[in-house]
Design a protein around this nucleic acid. Structure first.
Length: 600
RNA sequence: GGAGCCGUGGUGUAGUUGGUUAACACACCGGACUGUCACUCCGGAGAUCGCGGGUUCAAGUCCCGUCGGCUCCGCCA
């Protein structure tokens, strides 16, 4: 039996791999791993040992192996050890544990390394706060939950690669050091030493490169692409994130769906969930009208409706003003079963509506035939009853109404709908609603900038039969873009791209990007379009978000090994950090004194 | 850029209307224990309450500022 430190380094089995068969054979093994827990009974010492394959109980019995038992007395949580021994059936089995029927009878043990009293307790179900977890990420990652999350991520990546490979896609890497592009998010910049005063930008996505790969004739490309955006962060946004970036030549949106749907289905299979195909589709306009948002959560009802005739000629200014405005509306949702909602409850909802941008929320409730409303005096009982009915509600229900610009109504009610559904537990467990949203407008008007901006990006193709309207009514042109939505979260988006120079020129023109600027910023793309560019299109899937959802967590930080905080810092490496003056000089850079230092 | 919540031994929390020895659990140290499995039992050490300022006879507790974490709005083609 092995006994030296060197011998106890060479493992012959994994903790989670051993079975009752090994026990019945009395197999002798060497295990390496961490002390997960210890239970010292004085004579008998039990150690739960953990490695990447799982956990196994090791027992040290002084009457059998006194030296090993003596050595085991010094073991503490998270010590790294090697143990040699015999796999045996337990005297007192524990069916709650995967390896609970067997144990290792420790014959010799060595400590490969000790561990301090750690800031995060691996074996404890009690969670450290996120600041501690991020600072000591290498310990946090030992915890079963994060081990599981990252292993799930790997399985999903593998599933996607398999499907793409089966469809003859080629994985091609594109540059991380590229040039800054106008439009879109803020870039992360990298100064050039060789070209003082000039900067690379880290890619917000490999958009242009993948189009160029189509022009280069690869026809089917994919990449697990790291993307960088210097914008404010959220639970589902990190400054660097991963997209499954896909592009195909000679395709219609239908062909993209026909590829992506099986890919998504296969990813779900990796977590043992069956998903039905084809995924439903919805026009952007319908999504906004029914759900108030372009990424509707279709797992529950409470859809938005216009109050319609019931709101007309009431003499109520709150209604009359929006209705007199061509862009205004009076819209509402019905919370069924909320007819008896308390004043406090309604105030809470009103507060949410205000947070979402509304000036106020009007409510009508009906319980036992008795009407209550924040506008009862102005509207009267009959009118209130009409409005409730117009929104699809009846006795026992409550209607929540917003009168404002149509887009603000949608925004407020769309947010309210989701928040109330969560509050009232209206979202079914275990439902996975996938949905294609299509027929987006090509542009939307940016009132601040006083011009049109691309809703998707400037390379998105308009519907080919609407190209003629690019100059006359750009706001009405629809694009060949599509988003993939899962339970109200956008998990992917793409489009058919513009492959003809003349169309691209006209889109740039509509966006207020002049020929000169287009040439300077995108000259390489324009020339490429003139070199025999095939019709092409693709999609980018938000891999972190997909992983988070399928791993059952709300935050993508849980599926990223080393994530950053909401202020884009890494608490472990303490980046970003200041650099030597010499480095700056070499790069031709100088920092502004006035910006002040943080962290003092 | 804005709003909200949070910051107390190594870790997670408690700490009523400001009142004198800052409590509990886990981890840690010592002791007891031969079948535990979140082992149990006994004992011990360990925090001046993120930082700075203010109010007060008195501040973990109230006020202001600041730093950090989280959530949301704006932003993110």
């Amino acid at each position: 039996m092995a006994g030296t430190e060197q011998e106890l380094l060479i493992r012959t089995a994994g903790c989670g791999e051993l079975t009752e068969k090994d026990a019945s054979e009395g197999r002798e093994v060497v295990l390496t791993g961490w002390v997960h827990r210890r239970r010292d009974l004085g004579q008998l010492i039990f150690i739960e040992m953990r490695d990447a394959t799982g956990r196994l109980q090791v027992v040290f019995d002084p009457s059998l192996h006194p030296d090993a038992h003596a050595a085991a007395e010094s073991l503490r949580a998270e010590y790294v050890i090697g143990v040699a021994g015999t796999v045996v059936m337990r005297e007192a089995p524990n069916p709650d544990h995967p390896t609970g029927m067997i144990e290792l009878r420790g014959q010799s043990v060595t400590v490969h390394n000790r561990a301090d009293n750690l800031p995060i307790q691996v074996a404890d179900q009690q969670e450290a706060n996120e600041e501690q977890r991020l600072k000591h990420r290498y310990i946090d990652l030992r915890r079963p939950r994060l081990q599981h999350a990252l292993r799930t991520r790997h399985r999903l990546a593998t599933a996607a690669r398999e499907v793409l490979d089966e469809h003859r896609f080629v994985e091609i890497e594109t540059p991380m050091l590229t040039r800054s592009t106008p439009e879109g998010a803020r870039d992360y910049l990298v100064p050039s030493r060789v070209h003082p005063g000039k900067f690379y930008a880290l890619p917000q996505s490999p958009q242009l490169f993948k189009q160029l790969l189509m022009i280069a004739g690869f026809e089917r490309y994919y990449q697990f692409a790291r993307c960088f955006r210097d914008e404010d962060l959220r639970a589902d946004r990190q400054p660097e994130f991963t997209q499954i970036d896909i592009e195909m030549s000679f395709v219609t949106p239908q062909q993209i769906y026909d590829l992506i749907e099986p890919l998504i289905v296969r990813m779900f299979e990796a977590i043992d969930v069956q998903i039905a195909r084809p995924f439903p589709r919805m026009a952007h306009a319908e999504a906004v009208d029914r759900f108030g948002i372009d990424r509707p959560d279709t797992r529950f009802g409470m859809e938005l409706r216009d109050v319609g005739a019931a709101a007309e000629s009431t003499g109520f200014r709150v209604f009359d003003e929006p209705l007199a405005d061509p862009g205004g509306a009076v819209r509402g949702i019905v919370v069924d079963g909320a007819g008896g909602a308390s004043r406090k409850q309604l105030d809470t909802w009103n507060g949410w509506a205000r947070e979402a941008g509304a000036r106020g929320l009007l409510w009508i409730k009906s319980a036992g035939g008795k009407i209550g409303s924040s506008a009862l005096k102005v509207l009267g009982e009959e009118r209130c009853r009409d409005i409730l009915r117009a929104l699809g509600g009846g006795d026992g229900d409550a209607a929540l109404i917003v009168a404002a610009d149509r887009s603000l109504c949608n925004q407020v009610l769309g947010q309210l709908r989701v928040r109330i559904a969560r509050e009232r537990d209206r979202i079914p467990e275990g439902a996975w609603n996938l949905l294609w949203v299509e027929q987006f407008p090509l542009f939307e008007h940016d009132d601040e900038a006083g011009r049109y901006v691309a809703i998707h990006h400037p390379f998105t193709a308009p519907n080919w039969d609407e190209v003629s309207r690019l100059e006359t009514s750009p706001g009405d042109v629809r694009s060949q873009a599509y988003d993939l939505v899962l339970n109200g979260t956008e998990i992917g988006g793409g489009s058919i791209r513009i492959h003809r120079r003349d169309v691209q020129d006209r889109v740039f023109e509509a966006l207020g990007i002049g020929a000169e600027e287009a040439e300077e910023k995108f000259g390489f793309l324009l020339r490429a379009l003139d070199s025999g560019a095939p019709p092409h299109g693709g999609i980018a899937l938000g891999f972190d978000r997909i992983c988070a959802m399928l791993a059952g967590t709300d935050s993508i930080r849980e599926v990223i090994a080393f994530p950053k905080t909401t202020s884009a810092s890494c608490l472990m490496t303490e980046s970003p950090a200041e650099v030597d003056a010499q480095q700056l000089t070499e790069l031709g850079l100088k920092t502004l004194e006035s910006r002040g230092k943080k962290g003092d």
